[in-house]
């Protein structure tokens, strides 16, 4: 897989060689993408939100959602103890029911990667690390790259980088592109998630442009947000990014993952996102290799819903574990 991933990344880069030849060429390419009508996009996301997912479909969706969680702690107050607890939870989300799927990954700061790695060792749960001066990304490139190399050296399986929103909003797309390429290089075999901080990009046109920019530069995943600003993942911005990966695959044959992060707290919300995936990108993305939720409190709500489906009764917050 790693070598193939690299081969496809460079194939993608050469496919867009003309578009990325200069700042102005890249600008022309990105501004030539079809515009997004905000009202229509939000209406479509809302309409898909009315799908009624019941019984067997709900059970499937809940287990799938659990298996797609990047269980996250990104606090200044994170300690080895906290990270070990998170790792244990990722491996056995519901100690009362061992058939519960594991989460996809735990997501931590680079200095916690080694601890996280130990906590999930042998379980198949991946360790993802935010890097590149997360969440603001305001640091020199070599500092960002050192941050990435540090996380990779500690054993991170996945790197969640932030783009330089300042450069993007100033129209310096090539700088953003080059930075993603450099981080991809530094990530080695780790899969790269590129965070746009959609709340700061603000417009849907910008989100579509950023999605293509990230995919052309070699992102393995495109991710909405850091969870650290006012507006994080929404059904509409995730729908738009799902359209982008769908179109990118149709054009290049390369499949890219999507990760909405921040603000998804209830099972009901998670199921709505899975409906978006199913009816936009399609069944190929219904797998934690291609779709993730960046979340923490979501997991307990999913577990309570799962218990309800199994027993017919609502349990309560004391029947699931605090992280």
């Amino acid at each position: 897989m790693p070598t193939t991933a690299h081969a496809t990344a460079s194939a993608t880069a050469s496919a867009f060689a003309d578009a990325t030849a200069s700042d102005s060429a890249l600008r022309r390419f990105l501004h030539g993408l079809p515009g997004v009508d905000a009202v229509g996009l939000e209406a479509r996301a809302a309409a898909l939100g009315t799908r009624s997912i019941k019984t067997t479909a709900k059970a499937y969706a809940i287990d799938l959602a659990i298996s797609m969680i990047d269980l996250t702690t990104l606090e200044g107050a994170d300690t080895p103890g906290k990270v070990r607890a998170l790792g244990a939870k990722a491996v056995h989300p519901d100690p009362s029911d061992r058939t519960t799927p594991r989460t996809a990954a735990v997501c931590v700061y680079p200095d916690m990667v080694a601890t996280a790695k130990e906590a999930v060792a042998g379980s198949g749960v991946k360790v993802a690390s935010v890097a590149t001066a997360f969440p603001a990304g305001r640091a020199a490139l070599d500092v960002k790259l050192a941050d990435v190399r540090d996380a990779v050296a500690a054993g991170a399986d996945e790197i969640d980088m932030v783009i330089d929103r300042g450069a993007f909003l100033a129209g310096r797309y090539l700088k953003v592109y080059d930075e993603i390429r450099a981080v991809k290089e530094a990530s080695g075999t780790a899969r790269l998630k590129v965070i746009f901080e959609t709340g700061e990009l603000s417009t849907y046109d910008n989100i579509r442009r950023a999605s293509w920019l990230g995919m052309m530069a070699g992102a393995d995943f495109i991710k909405t947000s850091t969870g650290k600003v006012g507006v994080n993942a929404t059904p509409a911005n995730t729908l738009l990014m799902l359209e982008a990966v769908r179109d990118f695959k149709q054009q290049t044959g390369v499949q890219i993952g999507v990760k909405p992060a921040g603000g998804i707290r209830t099972s009901k919300d998670a199921v709505k996102f899975l409906v978006l995936v199913n009816e936009t990108a399609g069944a190929d993305w219904l797998d934690n290799h291609w779709f993730r939720f960046g979340a923490s409190s979501l997991l307990n709500d999913l577990l309570m819903q799962r218990q309800k489906l199994a027993t017919g009764r609502y349990s309560g917050p004391d029947y699931v574990t605090v992280d």
């Binding site: 799908r51 997912i53 019941k54 067997t56 479909a57 499937y60 199913n278």
Partner: peptide, 11 residues
């Protein structure tokens, strides 16, 4: 058949 996410009837 190919899509595991088959919506159950919701009448």
């Amino acid at each position: 058949l190919n899509n595991p996410f088959e919506y159950a009837p919701a009448p």
